[in-house]
């Protein structure tokens, strides 16, 4: 069984066709990266997999569950991290996690474990509004991991992070991957993606233009970045 299976997914916003028959699959326990220029439909695709958006046609299955008909089952098994941390600014880190833990029906002990893991236990009782971008993003990871999801969806998770923040973030993802969590992510930072992910797909104007091992994707050219630019016909967009 695939962790994520996407078949012939189409999505229009009005007359604008954002996804035009996207098919791809992510194996369990692998890290898969979606590459492509802005507006290629990466975020839309991630939101569809996350049950936040309904596709017009086509089927998406997460661990065998249909995202449209079995959304609740899917939601119990996925964690989502986007550039928006999905946190309440007025509440403290611990209160945020308490709210989400109760919503997921997770024992509250798990909160301490995660605060420790993302190294926020010292600031746990301060309001999130006082946190830096990197801290919010770490807390967001903790939020997404509360219910021990089997699949983690990441949409530009490192946007706005400094170099150290990004490195820590990828180290954390690496650990999760070793624990067997499946990762499906979008990013502009191809180098880091390359280090973490084994397979990927390139999206352009709502279509998959290439899919496979990252090593194959870049076989013909110097680097993945060149391959990416060549395939998308983009200049300077990174």
């Amino acid at each position: 069984m695939h962790a994520v299976e996407i078949r012939d997914v189409e999505k229009c916003f009005g007359a604008h066709r954002v996804l035009r028959g996207v098919s791809l699959s992510v194996a369990e326990g692998e890290a898969f990266v979606l590459l492509g220029p802005n507006g290629a439909g990466k975020t839309t695709l991630i939101r569809i997999v996350a049950t936040l958006l309904r596709q017009d046609s086509g089927v998406v299955r997460v661990l065998g569950y249909d995202t449209r008909r079995e959304a609740q089952e899917v939601r119990r098994r996925i964690g989502v991290v986007t550039h928006n941390p999905l946190l309440y600014e007025e509440l403290t880190a611990r209160e945020n996690l308490t709210f989400y833990a109760r919503a997921y029906g997770v024992p509250l002990e798990r909160i301490e474990e995660l605060l420790d893991r993302v190294e926020l236990e010292e600031r746990a009782d301060e309001p999130v509004s006082t946190f830096s971008r990197g801290m919010k993003q770490r807390l967001s990871i903790a939020r997404a991991l509360l219910h021990s999801p089997e699949v983690l969806l990441l949409d530009e998770p490192t946007t706005g992070l400094d170099i150290k923040g990004r490195r820590d973030f990828y180290a954390l993802l690496g650990n999760l991957l070793e624990e067997g969590v499946t990762l499906l992510m979008t990013t502009h930072h191809t180098e880091e993606a390359e280090r973490l992910c084994s397979r990927g797909a390139v999206l352009r104007s709502g279509r998959v233009v290439a899919q496979g091992e990252l090593s194959e994707l870049k076989a013909s050219v110097e680097s993945l970045e060149d391959a990416y630019l060549q395939m998308t016909g983009e200049e300077g967009e990174g």
């Binding site: 996350a50 049950t51 936040l52 609740q72 939601r75 119990r76 996925i78 989502v80 986007t82 928006n84 999905l86 946190l87 309440y88 600014e89 989400y100 919503a103 997921y104 029906g105 939020r143």
Partner: peptide, 12 residues
């Protein structure tokens, strides 16, 4: 704030 997505992602 975008937290509506967070709410919708929970099994509530």
């Amino acid at each position: 704030l975008g937290t509506l997505d967070g709410l919708r992602l929970t099994p509530m």
